[in-house]
Write a protein that binds this DNA or RNA. Structure first.
Lengths: 344, 344
DNA sequence: TTGTAAGCGTTATCAT
DNA sequence: ATGATAACGCTTACAA
């Protein structure tokens, strides 16, 4: 194999590599002029520009953003970290976030953290090695080392999907405790006496659950049972959860607050299989307001979070930091809204 | 503002930047030794390694992957292009694909192309500027320029979700025409005489629809009407589609082949609102086999595509090209499966 | 085992 | 308007 190769060293460049140097040579200008033609065409004469563009066309030159980033100390990359990319709640939000930043000339480097702080820490390190110009991450809880790295990176940091008085730098989201309490208020106002919860393995969901249970009992209701799912939220998990609540945890009738619409749908389906009347004998409240929630039969009462607004505001927070200096608003609470439908 | 700064030039480094140079100085070794300690610790003496790690810990040093990529000509970045990131069908597949490659030390640079070839072309260019080590893209149709850029990039290219005899380099997927025909066969075998289609604005879905219609009539069935959705597939679009078929396009009873489960769910919901009996008067077939399909009432007959396998094989194709030479199998047809449930 | 030197392909700075 | 030159922070020879 080795003996067939014409030369073993010296030629690291595989012949085909087109650089600004190549383009410049063809256009009869220096490499810097090519760089200028691309970054600010007005700095180059019309004729030169024409020849350069011709050479680019001819060679199929695509600028090397890696070299550009190293030289300029700006990667034009922005990190987005979400718990799960297959969860529409997060992916739709990232889409809005990304579209906004793409328009501003940035590219998104997306990864998932799996609702796990330790995994988040590792992912953060990997991402920071790419020297992103900013970082958006889901949640306000992070490991100490993650926090240290974030601070040390010296770039804009936005934490989303939650709010705190002490963000690393900026946060855009809503209070999960308040959401839980609001649902409890809603449930009591609607006359439900007994409640249960079905919660995915997600710290923010846990906070909603706990705030719900506390308030619900404070208001004279009875918190009967809770079921916490091990894996990710799914319809199957929701069905299973209701079975457990009914068959093992002594839950009879009342309202069930689920940490996601998918779980709520599962609960609803299981209830229907068992011919339990909704909402008469069992009322169901979801979280997230995904598209299907409004179309279920009965339509699902749930908590709506404006994910588009969240994406926009998070992107704006970053962009503001880029051309501004200190952020004017570094804590943004976008709130939430209980959407009352037929399942309660 | 300018007069406040101690010096205007010379110091491009904002003081805080930690490099291998810094780490080396603290550990009492040269920069290369730090590089070695990180890339291959066995090449460094135990004592030196200890001091280097200490210095890294102390400084919070995070290697600069941009510089590394430029020097090594390997970005350890792999591009993944899908039509839509909010569509679970694609995001779940990308997750598998990404997990596999992450384990191999690569990071995924994900973007969406919006089912649009021109947009895909732009995205490809942006991505190639980051010099990915490989590229995965959805579909086998691309603009001529996109094709040229892909070829010129001289990196492994995998096209997924479709198969062709003439891939750019490798493809992993299934035949959409065959899928359409298989659904037609299934429908005729189950005795349906009249058919309609509801299709999203997606070229591959169009091919399934056309193959379905052709085969269905060849087998003696009657293709009554088709409805093509303008926007993305959704429950609302599905409901709307059935209304149009029923109220405007003269569709009465029979089977409806939808290009996605979401559309099928919409059709089902609209049918139920109208008290149409499923499957007696209206049979429904979806595509994708998302989780909810099995849980609908009646459970949805649909076409299952093994997205995990797709992600795996696509990742393996790339990894194979990395350490192998020419791919052994450059066309992989993973097929599909019709999952017969109660909606037909 | 460690160090020196030469890139990698850009952008920033300073001349012309 | 254009060019020469020095970074940018690494990796890859090659030498010691």
């Amino acid at each position: 194999m080795g003996e067939l190769k014409p030369h073993q060293h010296g030629t690291r460049r595989p012949a085909g590599r087109v650089t600004m140097e190549t383009v410049g040579r063809i256009a009869g200008v220096s490499q810097v002029t090519v760089s200028r033609a691309l970054s600010d065409p007005s700095k180059v004469s019309g004729e030169t520009l024409r020849r350069i563009n011709e050479a680019i066309e001819q060679t199929g030159f695509v600028p090397n953003a890696i070299a550009g980033a190293l030289a300029s100390q700006r990667s034009r990359l922005i990190t987005a970290l979400v718990p799960s990319i297959t969860n529409v709640v997060y992916s739709s939000f990232v889409k809005t976030f990304g579209d906004r930043l793409r328009d501003a000339g940035y590219q998104i480097l997306l990864s998932e953290t799996g609702f796990d702080l330790k995994q988040e820490e590792k992912v953060i390190e990997t991402h920071l090695s790419r020297r992103p110009d900013a970082i958006m991450l889901t949640g306000i809880r992070h490991t100490a080392r993650a926090r240290r790295m974030l601070l040390g990176a010296d770039i804009p940091v936005v934490e989303v999907w939650d709010v705190t008085d002490t963000p690393i730098e900026m946060c855009v989201g809503f209070s999960h405790a308040e959401a839980g309490r609001a649902v409890a208020d809603f449930a009591r106002q609607n006359g439900f006496e007994r409640a249960g919860t079905v919660t995915a393995n997600d710290e923010r969901a846990h906070r909603r659950r706990d705030a719900f249970a506390k308030r619900f009992t404070e208001l004279g209701g009875q918190q009967i049972a809770e079921h916490n799912c091990a894996g990710p939220a799914s319809i199957a998990a929701g069905r299973d959860a209701l079975s457990v609540l009914l068959d093992e945890k002594g839950f009879g009738t009342g309202v069930i607050f689920c940490s996601s619409d998918a779980l709520a749908q599962g609960v609803m389906i299981e209830a229907q299989k068992r011919a339990i009347s909704i909402p008469r004998d069992l009322a169901i409240i979801g979280f997230g307001d995904q598209e299907f929630a409004a179309h279920l039969e009965p339509a699902l009462t749930t908590v709506h979070v404006d994910r588009d607004q969240l994406g926009q505001r998070a992107a704006d927070a970053i962009l503001g930091r880029f051309d501004g200096g200190a952020p004017t608003e570094n804590i943004v609470d976008i709130g939430f809204e209980i959407v009352a439908r037929m399942s309660t």
